[in-house]
Amino acid sequence: MKTFKTLFLTETKLMIRDMNNLIFGVGFSVIFAIIMGMIMGDKPAFEGADYSFIEQSFGAVVAIGIGATGLMGLPLALADYRHKKILRRFLVTPVSPAMLLLVQFIVNLLVSLLCLVLVYMVYALFFDFDMAGSFLFFILAYLLVLLSIYSIGMMLASVSPNIKTANLLCCAFYFPMFFFSGATLPYEIMPTALRNASDILPLTQGIKLMKVTSLGLPVENMIFPIMLMIVLAVVCILLSIRFFRWE
């Protein structure tokens, strides 16, 4: 517990000093939320919809935070520690790899939650946003999506032989999801072909799940996204531990 507390506090301080994670994980989604709100105001999501565009976009905008921390912040921090041989120093101490992964996981989780809270505040204060769906269900969906996206990030960090590959892999996973999962470019306005392609991205399914829960729509046809998130999380966490390397 002492180890976790000290590592966690120190890594949080380092993350704040570094700023990158805060800019891309929090700053970006908040700015995006403000722009979305100003452009779309209280327009309906589509003609005849019962909910506004803003209400519908909430799950997507907070997903930017999950993606930035889980597919960039988390894996790049781990790859950087390996590259700088900081992990090698930890190797000759009693600390377990799971502890190091957990600390990075929690630090990034905090950034992501900060993004969630700030986006909610922006929407609620300036654009009359009120979550129609159950807050509890939404949080559960959010945490499930976060777990599965983070596990992809941890797997990327574990399988990359060096920092360059890690960078490349993270970009290869992050940017398609950033643009085509509906996080930034709304899924609803995509042409059908692009939508079909977008459906294979895990974050697309995750955003669908968060949208449905935040709008309070029936979750019956969400079995596929839920199963996908769970399977991804289990597989990727196992892979990330199996392939964890100190050097």
Binding site: L14, D18, K84, K85, I86, R88, R89
Partner: peptide
């Protein structure tokens, strides 16, 4: 253990 080249976290 003291390694010949020690590296530490940034900042």
């Amino acid at each position: 253990v003291q390694f010949q080249q020690s590296n530490y976290q940034d900042k």
